[in-house]
Nucleic acid binder design. Structure first.
Lengths: 169, 169, 169, 169
DNA sequence: TTTT
DNA sequence: TTTT
């Protein structure tokens, strides 16, 4: 029986345009880099300091399509999801660790047509049936932009032939 | 100006007894491994599957003392905090990435004297003044138990001579 | 287009056994009184004080069945949901206001066979299809126990013949 | 010993300008009406419906000053806090119930000079010492604008002579 | 490594 | 009305 709660709530801005890929089955997987800048009170009366964390957020299925379509670099967004830790062993035999936020819910903030997005989209991950009829099948997902900081290794880069069943979470 | 929310809420069980260390200034830093097992609905009507995530949770100051004193292997606990990503370059020149949950609040669950703890402690991170009068100054923090998966490298192992100012978050 | 987040997270204990009713369509609606006792730091260095809030939590559909079956007076539980405010005008013409927590997710805490329940049930509100085949159709829901503080007026008391369509949220 | 978690997270828009009052001790209390519009999936394949909830949110101390200064009608805001239920007996002997969200944290969303505010303020409730040196002591807080929906009765209207110690939460 |  |  399951035991536990693993919940993440983020409000931040995208550092780049989202990247959307599709599984063999046609399910969208959209990844974004989300910055959350928060203030920490100084210790011992010291001054407050800022710290920015960059989260790798992944949206699946219908939510992935919406995120890919409406989010843009700079977009402010509310994300709710869970933390997923994964490890991969590279071809050099070195283990690598990745932390992703798997989004269940997303809402654009700020409204009033910021960026190309348009304001106020809200979406929840479809409860099941995440398999659209391969709408807008991607011709060639070249990724192009190099992954940022703590980026996924090639071996993890979901390719065009990626099968749904391989998804490790 | 700060922008963003970075909030984590966990309910899970400790995989091991907590480990407490102290900074030079006498501030407690307690680390625990927290398992959250959650259920994912299967895609395409497939059966539900469980996934367990192991979180590295850190408690500082007064909260660190309480966590070190009351939590035990197996304890069920509610934790609220934020995600902190750090990278370190090992002596071999290889970069390593770490994800920690920095706890702001903790509450023991279940009660009725589970483990040595006793039930129902609740604590929030002291807003300031995290510097107890070096109560129970650690003679020798040997750590003993090897760090787990994605464990901190030696260079990050807070030693007895660790200074508060070096804390990277 | 929807705008907004309305999220509640509670950890507390039931003050009474749950009450389950069924709509005409056979959907379970389980209500519980959940106490959350939290500490407030005193102002001006005053001592900390406790405050207990009693939440009216409602579980619908499959989640309502699980809550009705496994929760008991005294059970410790994690609840996630949203706040719902409603007003009703009594037959005396007086308006009355009610605040409910509509649960999306519930998890029993503490485990190890507390109460009649058994430990560690976890459930999410079924995404759709909240209409079981009238399993265990209630013979006679007498309610018995008088509703507590800020309790629902007779006109709101879901009777056996209550229709799903009347649910005001 | 305290037991329980009582946490609320809201993202919504203000229905009116905030109202700020001050206690005898000079502590600011700012109240806002916050609308959260969320979508509910239809039962039985029915279409989705929206529901808007209006939350009474209260900010105290330094956070109350910031909220009063920067928030405006229409502002989009993130609020974190807890639910507080109170009852008052009016002079007519009728009991009235109120539900407030007591904010611990607030962050303006959307940024870029929406309203008079300016973008991106973030604030947490000061851990203690909520007693500014009576900055901008209110000459006469006339309230003026009638309280909205499920509004507070006169007996609860914090007047100029209101003492901190009377605060019921 | 926990828990059910 | 719970719990510690």
């Amino acid at each position: 029986m399951a035991r536990g709660i693993n919940k993440v709530i983020l409000v931040g801005n995208l550092g780049n345009d989202p990247e959307t890929k599709y599984t063999q089955g046609g399910m969208a997987i959209t990844s974004v880099s989300l910055a959350t800048t928060t203030v920490r009170k100084g210790r011992d009366g010291g001054e407050a300091t800022e710290k920015t964390e960059w989260h790798r957020v992944k949206f699946f299925g219908k939510l992935g399509e919406i995120a890919g379509e409406y989010l843009r670099k700079g977009s402010q967004v509310y994300v709710e999801g869970r933390i997923s830790y994964d490890e991969f062993t590279g071809q050099d035999g070195v283990k690598k660790f990745f932390t992703d936020i798997i989004a269940d819910e997303m809402q654009m903030l700020g409204g009033r047509g910021e960026g190309g997005g348009g304001g106020g989209a809200r979406a929840e991950r479809s409860g099941g049936g995440d398999r659209p009829a391969r709408q807008a099948p991607p011709q060639r997902q070249d990724a192009g932009a190099p992954r940022r900081e703590s980026a996924a290794p090639a071996s993890r880069d979901f390719g065009d032939d990626f099968a749904d069943d391989d998804i490790p979470f």
